[in-house]
Design a protein around this nucleic acid. Structure first.
Lengths: 348, 348
DNA sequence: TAACGATTTGGGAACGCTCCCATGGATACC
DNA sequence: GGTATCCATGGGAGCGTTCCCAAATCGTTA
């Protein structure tokens, strides 16, 4: 009397199916994988056996030989609270899901915040648990992208980190919004409306978006033939409160300013609040243009003129790019840059 | 000259490490898995070889023999928009993460909304890709829990579906808030303050929470010796707008009512808005008590008295329960029921 | 009728790991 | 000094698939 190790809940194997259907392993495998090289009778017998036994292929065994798992990870380097709070994440997840829809790839999302979590995630990414990785909300000095590429794991970044922007940047697959171009558009719009002293509330300079949008501002000002006045630049961290603080600073340094380009809608909302508090009319006295076209842009008073970015499309493109890399299709361009356009509302 | 199949990016195997360290496979495996049965010299040689080669164990190979993947799935049967919009999900994810912190288990989140997504998720759950599953936001007729248990996959539900509430309910592992008890508390509170005609705005009756909170209301009214007046019961779908509509209906049917227990804070916010619009003072004319203690409860006018539920704790308990099941530890109680308490603010 | 090509089929080998058992050397005990 | 005990060690077997090649079967043609 031998004691059997209880194979996981006695799950039927491919061998069991083959035995029951009276065929060989190869034939069962062919049926399961949809190969056309199977006679109708054999196919039917196998399908019957599969149904009767409730057979489901073991992914570990399959992955061991195919080197594929048919799943990809979306890793968010952000706290749960910011993840749920910021308007950026819902549409990007939606876009990624839709981009993956007609691939065999299953999306798994995970957070990598605390050092313990990060280490665990890293392990699960590098040990062939997934076929590819999407990274969003990267902070500047994050070593994860380099590590993953080194391990040969296809990776696509959503948005560039600051050091990917300059010349000589390490190459990487990414999808990003044309932040500099959008910012330029916004500032050119203000200038074309006759605004004479255009300031900006920039984002944090250790993040790619922050740097790029400020660059666009500088470029547009320079292109108009004016010198860039550093006192017309204030910095925030994308939050409403920081936008308010920065607006105060700007008004103090340059009371004569008549327009502001703000690097995020949330900061713009803060700026609008301050302008109202100090009695400046928008857009008559000071015009305000934001960036993002987040839902909040429609609820400010007055509604915010802002640069629209298509976050959902960004997610979709990330998914497509990753799926192509996993399939081994080389694309000439390793990145996608999405256009932006100005949405004119009442603030400027 | 033989052509080698390009093993996944030439990743080093355990054999390669063994060869380099000059030891056998068994020894490498022991080092990797932290077995104490290894001499210091051997351990050091192996660790050196691992570092030099950049070896990472192949999870598929390991899973094939151990039948474990050290990862669990959190499956959300909800659209991305509701997931990001409802205040319930952020704290439950936070709780689950924290509960998993001192286990080896990696959390992967996925959505199962469209039929295509559902099928893909089902496959990835049943084919041994994960060791266990957490399900939240289950709709009533969802076949997923039954399917998973049938396949022998440890599953823990967050919240019960309606048909798990009555007697004769199919047994399952779950963590839930004592919804009926909380509702009873709320209604008893209103009655104890001398309210004479207490109505309720109930949630959808195809969801466990909806049913349970209404049951609590009925029990509390019955316990006070009054008959339950069906015209004092209106139904909503947990949204702000539906709360407003239901409040209108209640006022029309029973103009004399002087208190309402509302099954969610969001609906309560809608009810408060209507009461203000029609000129009823809260709490003087009509007392209002909500359920959830969501952030919105502190921002209503007046601030909402409500039943507090600890969603983060719920997540943590789900994680602990699942981890115990995966370890094979049998718990006497297959479920956890969390207490609630009343938070008295100004509305009732 | 024989020979040939096309199609279907079975099963060995391999994927990279863990488990387990037999081996050997060192240590302890009488 | 001989034997029993202990522990580190190497490596075979096996996990459940896919891949591939050789064999079997079928239909077609000369």
């Amino acid at each position: 009397m031998t004691t059997q190790r209880p194979r996981s809940a006695g799950r039927p194997t491919l061998d069991a199916v083959a035995a029951r259907a009276g065929v060989g392993r190869g034939t069962v495998s062919r049926v399961v994988n949809g190969s056309p090289q199977v006679s109708p009778e054999a196919r039917e017998a196998v399908q019957k056996a599969i149904a009767e036994l409730g057979y489901v292929p073991n992914r570990a065994a399959r992955a061991l030989v195919t080197q594929r798992t048919d799943s990809v990870a979306l890793v968010v380097s952000e706290s749960e609270d910011r993840f749920f709070g910021e308007p950026f994440f819902a549409p990007i997840v939606r876009g990624i899901s839709s981009g993956l829809l007609d691939t065999p790839l299953q999306l798994w999302l995970s957070w990598a915040q605390s050092p313990a979590e990060r280490e665990r995630v890293e392990h699960h990414l590098t040990d062939q648990h997934v076929d590819g990785v999407l990274l969003i909300s990267l902070h500047d000095e994050d070593p994860l992208p380099a590590l993953l590429e080194e391990r040969g794991l296809p990776t696509v970044l959503g948005g560039r980190s600051a050091r990917m922007l300059g010349p000589g940047a390490r190459p990487a697959y990414f999808v990003d919004v044309d932040n500099a171009g959008g910012a330029r558009q916004a500032v050119e719009h203000l200038l074309s409306r006759g605004r004479a002293m255009v300031g900006t509330i920039a984002g944090p300079q250790d993040m790619g978006v922050g740097v790029a949008r400020l660059t666009g501002y500088r470029e547009a000002i320079a292109a108009s033939g004016r010198p860039v006045d550093e006192d017309l630049i204030a910095y925030g961290d994308f939050s409403e409160a920081s936008g308010a603080t920065a607006m105060h600073r700007l008004l103090k340094e340059r009371p004569g300013l008549d327009a502001v380009f703000v690097a995020s809608d949330l900061m713009a909302a803060g700026a609008l609040r301050v302008l109202r508090d100090v009695g400046r009319r928008v857009p008559e006295d000071v015009a305000v243009v934001g960036f993002e076209d987040a839902p909040v842009a429609q609820q400010t008073d007055p509604p915010l003129t802002t640069v629209h970015q298509d976050v959902e499309e960004m997610g979709r493109q990330m998914a497509l790019l990753l799926a192509a890399r996993i399939r081994g299709e080389a694309s000439e361009e390793p990145y996608v840059l999405l256009d932006t356009y100005l949405v004119e509302r009442q603030s400027g």
